[in-house]
Design a protein around this nucleic acid. Structure first.
Lengths: 181, 181
DNA sequence: ACACCTTGGTTCAATGACCGAACTGACAGT
DNA sequence: ACTGTCAGTTCGGTCATTGAACCAAGGTGT
């Protein structure tokens, strides 16, 4: 049983001939989709992912490398003087938004009592439908035109600064501004 | 065996206040979404999941138990004489179809060369859109009205009988008929 | 009655993934 | 020179997954 594939990333589903299985080989590992979610919410820096997710450092480093290698995130330098990099979503990464939207809606309807966040079409204020479309405009809303705002179920005074920054009404992908320590 | 503790299934994301994280605690473990996918395709029996997925027996048993416990699958007796049970999707489980559709489409567009399966609206033959809706009828198609059929990329002579049975054009959820050995 | 098959599991040792804490290294500010 | 921040790497322990073997209940064939 040779793995046809040369590089053998983590956990594969070798016997499966299925695009769902292929997708899960890439983004099905623990923490991975939460990293992508945070990136959609505007998180870009290693340390912000770290404190917001509560993920072990080694695992975060591994996930960022895999996601970068698969073309879902892109690592780029945003300042020179102390050299600092940030991780931003590529087109391929942004294309995961409908999946995450559907998954979040499923989670909310079946396992959450209160609404945690609202996602609305910036142009008209309508809450998004199950795959990220605007029911009023009847069109898929580009990520930049989606505003996220906290719902009643969300803790108003979270411990970590990233969660606090995410309480502010903002657009998807808009870089997160954390409080200066 | 397992989780004596009230709930606390395996891997949680304790710090996350997010319906995506809640969802991933339930269906984010390895193999779980593939079990749900197979169930949507009409697989119902332990042995069919086993040979189709190539999953270790212990893991399959654990996943079926978790999914049953979370109300995603329901275990029910379908014959008495040799007592046999089957696992069928509940409403909560069927509600995962849009998520899996979105995920599969993402996988196909970014990591697959050829089309493996088509999913069409039975009434009009139109291929489904990215969240399981019919672009022609402009409505979400109920699962029973979705026909799946093999695409050009799918192996025509797979080794296991479940994959062979899945080559037949059939509707979602329609129970799979494997060849008698 | 006896052997043997199918279905649906459970048990076990070995491997691999994940965990938290400590350590490293590059740079900046004082 | 010392302190602090950021972005990792290293390390020992723990937990999940794996494949193979074992088990049990209920047929079927002779």
């Amino acid at each position: 049983m040779a793995t046809v594939d040369g590089m053998a990333l983590g956990k594969d589903y070798a016997t499966q001939e299925c695009s769902i299985a292929r997708a899960l080989e890439i983004i099905g590992e623990r923490w991975t989709l939460l990293v992508v979610r945070d990136a959609l919410y505007g998180v870009r820096r290693y340390n912000d992912f770290l404190v917001h997710l509560g993920i072990p450092r080694a695992v975060l480093a591994a996930r960022l490398q895999t996601l970068t290698g698969e073309g879902i995130l892109e690592k780029r330098r945003y300042q020179q003087s102390p050299p600092r990099d940030e991780y931003v979503l590529t087109e391929r990464g942004r294309a995961l938004w409908p999946t995450l939207r559907a998954l979040g809606l499923w989670g909310r309807e079946h396992f959450t009592e209160t609404q945690l966040r609202y996602f609305r079409h910036a142009d008209c204020g309508t809450e998004l439908g199950p795959y990220g479309e605007c029911p009023a405009c009847k069109a898929v809303v580009p990520l930049e035109d989606v505003v996220m705002e906290p719902g009643p179920g969300l803790d108003r005074a979270p411990a970590d600064p990233v969660s606090r920054a995410l309480l502010k009404r903002k657009r998807l992908l808009e870089p997160l501004e954390t409080e200066p320590a």
